[in-house]
Structures are given as C-alpha cells and as structure tokens.
C-alpha cells in the first residue's frame, strides 16, 4: 500500500478537485458553492450601484477590518467540523487586545506573542476540559467566554488601553506589505494554510471523521482527543491574533469589543455551507462567508452614504440578521433538494 506515483502537471489540479465527490447532484454543488455565487452577485450589485465600491481604498479597508473575523472563522470552522463549538473566541480576542496593548511599548514581537499566547492558553484550557473531563464544548467555552471577558476588564481596569504609537506595534494592524494590508496577509495565510490542513493532512481528515462519527473515528484508532484539543488550541490562538490586530488597528486594547464575534464567526462558517453538526465543510466557503457578511455591512454604509435612506447601526444589524436567515433558509432548502435527489 506504499506505492507512489510520479508527480505530473495534472497532479495538483486533480488533487485539488479530489475532495469533491463526483456524481453528486447539482443541488450539492449549489449548496456548497452557493455562497460564492451570492458573493459575486453582491459585488456586481455594489460595483454598479456605488462609485468607488471597487476602489483600492474601499477594498483594502474592507480586507483590513474583516481579516480579524476571517482569522477567527478559520479556527471556528475546524472546531465546528469536529462537531464542536467555540463560544469563547470573541472575549478571548478582547483579552488578547488588552494584553497586547499593555505590552505594546515593548515592541512588536512581545505583545504579538503574548496576545497569541493568551488566546492559545484559553484554547488549551477549552480543549483539555472538553477532551479530558468530557464536558460539552458549548458549556466549557461559555464558561471561558465569561472568564476571558472578566480577565480582559480586570487587566484593562475597565477601560480601553491606549497602545504605544512609537514601538511599531501599530504596524501589525495598520501597516502594509507589498501594498496589501498586513492583517489581510495574515488572513490570507490562515485561509491557505487552513485549506491545505483540511484537505491534505491527516489532521484535517481526522477533524472531518470526528465530526462525522466520533465513535467510529475512535475505533479506527484515530487520535480523536488530540485532534479535538488541537482544534480548540488553534481557534484560541487565532482569536488571540485577531485580538492583537484589533488593538493595533484601532490603537487601543478594547475589553468590551469582541462580544458577538463568536456569533459572526459561526454565521460565516455556516453560511459557507459547513454543517453545524460537523463532518462536512470547507475553508474556501468559510472565506466566502466572511466576505459576504463583511460586504453586507459595507454596502449598507455605501447606501447610507448615498443619502437616500439613513440606517442606524441598529437597523444595519437587523438587516444583516434577516439576510443571514435568508441565506441559511436557502441552504436548508438546497440540502433538502439534494437529499431528495439522492445525494
């Protein structure tokens, strides 16, 4: 069973197409790629309706801001694909933003490492309790959600913590590299690495196997607990990184930011067609999901800018919620059609 074939030109293309099963109905394709279609339609809508929608400034600031959600969504996607959930990412990001802001006078590396490290630590605690003590992820991460929020307020003294503007720390969130925002680079890297990890590593396949049937995965001898632990560790660390970017981008550690980010991330993952019960999912569609949710806000801002209607932030939230519901409903319908068509 250890034979191997020579690498050829078609190898990668074939391999990239490989995880998508053939002989599935068009419903499956529509369900998994539907979010991409919606994204393209929304971009076309925005581009024809508003000036400067596709201008460099708008695109780059959109990416700069939404990369935080992107990072969190990558971690969340892995957790959800194991059949778990991580509610602690939002306040973990807030905690990391405070810690990195406090350490920001010490340069770039230390606050960055501390922020990511704090997130990783919370992820490890989640993972350990979930795998060793066998407590439901929902409960465990709800507890760490509360604890992280408390810690963030405690460290911050219940107010925002200004960052140092001289140490270079703000470059993480505000700087560019090759004309592209640094956070967007990080986000892009996370998505590429995440995609590779999911589709081309034993780790990724084990994640899906666990979500598909945990008991079977255990009986197959797969390292179930270790992989679950690692997904929470990853999710925590990425949330930490998002928190560092938050502090750096807005010039302050924000103990009360991040509330609801976990829901944004879950929404992005689910809109991307990943099953909330685990076992099936895609990193690429998760990216589409993040961009889709980000674009809706962006478009609402443009709409306000046109001065025809004026929507408060509250109404924007309502509209986003309704839009999300529509997308999820559509997907549920498609999944049903797919089921009826026999896969």
């Amino acid at each position: 069973m250890s034979e191997s074939i020579p690498m050829n030109a078609g190898h990668l293309a074939q391999a990239l197409a490989a995880p998508i099963a053939r002989k599935r109905s068009r419903w499956h394709l529509l369900r998994t790629q539907g979010v991409l279609v919606a994204l393209v339609l929304l971009i076309i809508f925005g581009a024809t309706r508003y000036d400067n929608f596709l201008g460099a400034y708008n695109v780059l600031s959109l990416l700069r801001y939404n990369s935080m959600f992107g990072l969190i969504a990558v971690g969340m996607a892995f957790v959800i694909m194991t059949g778990g959930i991580d509610l602690s990412v939002g306040t973990t990001a807030a905690l990391a933003s405070v810690i990195s802001a406090l350490l920001s006078p010490r340069g770039v590396v230390l606050p960055l490492a501390a922020g990511v490290g704090a997130g990783a630590l919370i992820g490890m605690i989640n993972g350990l309790i979930i795998t060793r003590l066998k407590i439901l992820p929902f409960i465990v991460t709800l507890c760490t959600f509360l604890a992280a929020h408390g810690l963030a307020l405690l460290f911050a003294g219940n107010q925002s913590v200004s960052v140092s503007w001289d140490s270079g720390f703000t470059e993480i969130g505000q700087g560019d590299f090759l004309g592209f925002p640094i956070p967007a680079w990080m986000g892009a890297l996370a998505f590429i690495a995440g995609g590779l990890l999911l589709n081309f590593s034993a780790f990724g396949r084990t994640v899906l196997a666990i979500g598909g049937n945990e008991e079977a995965a255990r009986l197959m001898g797969l390292p179930v607990d270790r992989v679950k632990f690692l997904t929470y560790l990853m999710s925590g660390a990425l949330a930490g990184l998002a928190g560092v970017i938050l502090a750096s981008q807005f010039g302050a550690g924000q103990p009360n930011e991040g509330n609801g980010w976990e829901l944004f991330a879950i929404a992005a993952v689910v809109v991307g067609g990943t099953r909330l019960t685990g076992g099936e999912g895609s990193i690429g569609s998760t990216l589409s999901g993040v961009l889709l949710l980000g674009l809706i806000f962006n478009i609402l801002n443009f709409e306000n800018g046109k001065g025809v209607i004026s929507l408060s932030a509250y109404w924007q939230s309502v509209i986003r919620g309704v839009f999300l519901l529509i997308v999820v409903l559509l997907q549920a319908r498609l999944a049903q059609k797919e089921h009826e068509a026999g896969g």
């Binding site: 250890s2 396949r205 196997a209 598909g212």
Partner: peptide
C-alpha cells in the same frame, strides 16, 4: 458499521494512514 458516512469510500479505507507525497 463504524465508518464515517459523510467521507468518501477511499478516505474511510485509509483514514489515519493516508498515502502522502
């Protein structure tokens, strides 16, 4: 049957021992 219904036939055979390159 203790297999993973959502994964492909090939994956179910090789999970944990996938051929690598």
């Amino acid at each position: 049957l203790n297999l993973i219904p959502l994964r492909s036939v090939a994956e179910n055979i090789f999970l944990g021992r996938e051929p690598r390159r």
